[in-house]
Design a protein around this nucleic acid. Sequence first.
DNA 1: GTGAAAGCGCTAACAG
DNA 2: CTGTTAGCGCTTTCAC
Lengths: 349, 349
Amino acid sequence: MNRKPHVTLSDIAKQLNVSKVTVSKALRGHPDISRETTKLVKKVAEELGYTPNFAARNLSSRKSNTIGVVVPKIAHFFFSSLIESIYDQAFYNNFDIALTVSQENVERERKHIETLMAMRVDGLIISITQQTKDKTIFEKVVSRDVPLVFMDRVMPVDGTSQVTVDDKGGAIKAIELAIDNGYTKIAHIGGFTEINIGRRRYEGYVEAMKRRGLEIDPDWVVHGGFGEDDGYQGFMKLYKSGRMPEFIFAVTYPVALGVYAAAAEVGVRIPDDLDIICFGSASINKFLKPALSYVDQPTATLGKVAVDLIIEHIGESDEYLPKHIEVPTELVMRDTCLRKKNAVISSAK
Amino acid sequence: MNRKPHVTLSDIAKQLNVSKVTVSKALRGHPDISRETTKLVKKVAEELGYTPNFAARNLSSRKSNTIGVVVPKIAHFFFSSLIESIYDQAFYNNFDIALTVSQENVERERKHIETLMAMRVDGLIISITQQTKDKTIFEKVVSRDVPLVFMDRVMPVDGTSQVTVDDKGGAIKAIELAIDNGYTKIAHIGGFTEINIGRRRYEGYVEAMKRRGLEIDPDWVVHGGFGEDDGYQGFMKLYKSGRMPEFIFAVTYPVALGVYAAAAEVGVRIPDDLDIICFGSASINKFLKPALSYVDQPTATLGKVAVDLIIEHIGESDEYLPKHIEVPTELVMRDTCLRKKNAVISSAK
DNA sequence: GTGAAAGCGCTAACAG
DNA sequence: CTGTTAGCGCTTTCAC
């Protein structure tokens, strides 16, 4: 497997009887070089089929112009649209993206971070797994002075920035809407409270119930993961308890889908027998019957802000002050949670 | 933004009073080095918080241990599950993945390929955009002796391998099933025929109709893109013609969803007024009413084969003979295309 | 405007 | 088993 050697700067330089340096500068559009030489160099580079060697470039310049990204999942509307937005914003700023997927696996997450550091990415955007608890690897990143931005699923680590959506506020809006609809028996199929998105949405639920003077029945709060299966299990647990709530606030869209599946199985009709709202959506929501009303997560903004923050940090001195930005959410009404027309309705996307 | 210098091999070497080479070998588990030294080196590396520099490693070894991947979309069940499978298989073989997304944009696709070549990836797996026609960039890849595997959406380029699903065979099975169900007025909302997946599925439709002696009404064949909107437009075109078919074979799952949306809008009931089957599926299919019967695309196999092929090519001499592998499909029956119980039913996933 | 010298951090090839 | 030498391809001073 010996491939033919790639064309290098020297090859171009030789051909033109100039130095490597001139070629290097010309190719990067450095103002040192005359327009004429630059043009000539580019022409020859094209003819020879020159492709720069990033490894060499990174090694000598000590930067990669690349942002490393670690997400827990990819076959998932929330993350895939988030990633598209990150790509767009990075592209726009002339950064490359090195994308890795941890598959909700802590060990894999760690390995990916190590790999990205070995690649000497200029910064790291991370959305942690459901189970990530150990801060060590993140502290290692910080101690290497690699800018780190947590996105959506975050962790409190000194020296890092965070972008989240207003999980608590969104949850409060959702629950208040349910209460305005006349419901009092309101359950929450929630995520793990060790992680911010699970915890904050739960807190929003608690807060809204408290504000409106409603009791929380401990049996009506189920904590688990963020997937379909967790929704299915959560529903079944409530169902088997024999004391069904009137309303469920699902921590994610997949969890709500799990509830749909379980409800269909046992003949509970949505939204008549059981009404529901959830956090997040998916492109197929409009095909769901009934389509879910939901708290919208602005993935486009989330991704853009994450990239902006990391680039800002990369460009700053050592004394950069990390930020925490919280992106607002809004309610989008579809076919659930509509019992009372006079309920507060926000504009929909 | 001057970051503190990273720990290097020399740092470890100095500390231990050995040479860089010894450290390098020890760290990579080279058999040259005694177990004792190796252990010691690793310990110190750990203590110092050493992270290898891939740029340096790649530069001096002339390989990156990385496979470049270019896909047209990511927020899309087919591609996101494909990508997960590629990751798994690459990970298993100790390769890294450099993933890029062209967003169905030819120019972006070209840039990404250039970037990946600049990264000196060991090989490239590409699924082209809907519009890609120019072979130049791919020929450039081949001329650089970079192994290239086309996946699903392919192009005939000398020296490259291909993995596809049996598009034509799958389409034939689908149409024959429709005919077995007693339908004769069968329309096809298809993709562009310039690209293999559009062309082959269309050919399957034509072939099956011919085999069963049915006429194809040119008005019942609509060609367009592969998205929801294309399905919506396609349906509307058929609908407005005033001569509705009884059955639609949709070229992709999103196209079928577009048909659902359009049909709902004008009050055409599926599957009673109009029955349908499509190529491909999505995780939410079970929540769709009626759930689509479909030709299943084995994304796990597709991804695995793509990675296996590229690794095989990377490992071989210059004289590697490219392969074309076609992965079989199977019909999965749900709530559509069921009119006759005695129709051929395959096992479902 | 241009170029010479030096070196980024690592591995390959060989010698001991 | 360990070390020496050389160099991957590029960018960075700093002279000219």
